[in-house]
Nucleic acid binder design. Sequence first.
DNA 1: AAAGATATATAACGTGTGTTATCTATAGAA
DNA 2: TTCTATAGATAACACACGTTATATATCTTT
Lengths: 188, 188
Amino acid sequence: MPPIPKFSKKDIVQCSYEIVKKEGFAKLNARRIAAELGCSVQPIFHNFTSMEELNKEVYKCIYQKYKAYMLSGKEKENPYKQMGISYIEFASDYPEFFKILFMQKTTLNANDFVVNDAIGEDVIKTGQTLTGLSYEEQKKFHVKVWIFTHGIACLVATKTIQFTQEEIEELLAKSVKEMLIGYIKERK
Amino acid sequence: MPPIPKFSKKDIVQCSYEIVKKEGFAKLNARRIAAELGCSVQPIFHNFTSMEELNKEVYKCIYQKYKAYMLSGKEKENPYKQMGISYIEFASDYPEFFKILFMQKTTLNANDFVVNDAIGEDVIKTGQTLTGLSYEEQKKFHVKVWIFTHGIACLVATKTIQFTQEEIEELLAKSVKEMLIGYIKERK
DNA sequence: AAAGATATATAACGTGTGTTATCTATAGAA
DNA sequence: TTCTATAGATAACACACGTTATATATCTTT
């Protein structure tokens, strides 16, 4: 009986996702989405009870994108190293997403997600195979690697530094190596 | 002939500064300032042609606060180490300010300031006395120290990690020491 | 073909924001 | 004391945003 819908939930989320990718949540609003889809605001409020609900859906997509980046790293020959590179690459390719996920506290990520899975058990264990440290030592060492990696990623996301992917990989690899040497030397 | 002014530029900037300190620029607006000062919005637009002009003044104050933190570090017995600590302490004491200065690009900091003076000549030279490296080597090494320090500061500003000042100082001091050991060992 | 359900458009309301027009009160000059 | 310049209050306008009321168009069932 009803007319065939022209604008699905998926269309609206996808369109919103693209806006946020380019300009962040600050620029996402009903009229903007409507303009880009070539419709009025009605399809949006038909499919979502409020903008907040839509925002949450978009946030979920962003988090999925991040997870996909991280998972792709696990397939490579040196997963521990690759995860750091993936983290920074994500910050480079999707700076707005990185800022949303890791550089601000919002009502969006408050309860629904525990984003900092970077210090998960498996990461520690993967790190052990690279470093040869004990589990407890690797845990401590990993905090330092994580801080360093996060530092680069933040600088990349804000475009404070503009390194090529190769420069970043070299910087990260070299630095972690040096940190490990120093860590091993200093431990008692 | 005119009545004695009750609300000076300084009063308004000071009040705005406090609001931004607690809640960031997002929560700064004319009516909010007026309410806190106990006046109408008129004194604001009498003293400033626009909110943007006031925002810039507030931004300047924030930057001055940051510079004062950094300068205070230079007086200590180990200035190079202290500057890193001051940077993180600033992020801890004034997270909103830190986010404004170093974690986002705004129209405010676009032209008027070159904020990243952290890699200034004098910092490098101060670092040399700590590390004993050549000028060029110190320059390279400092990038790594800066990234690490910035990483901690970002995590502190967003309250992602909640370390005490002592924990942070130990983490930073130990890590830089280890990084230096590794750096020296790996250089050709 | 007629009817009902609903997707979309149009237009509006309410709120929060920057900004400004108008009025009033005041302090010093005449 | 009277006059003038202006600081401030009140109130309004313009605009952007979330949201909703109403009207219209369309598809499926009968």
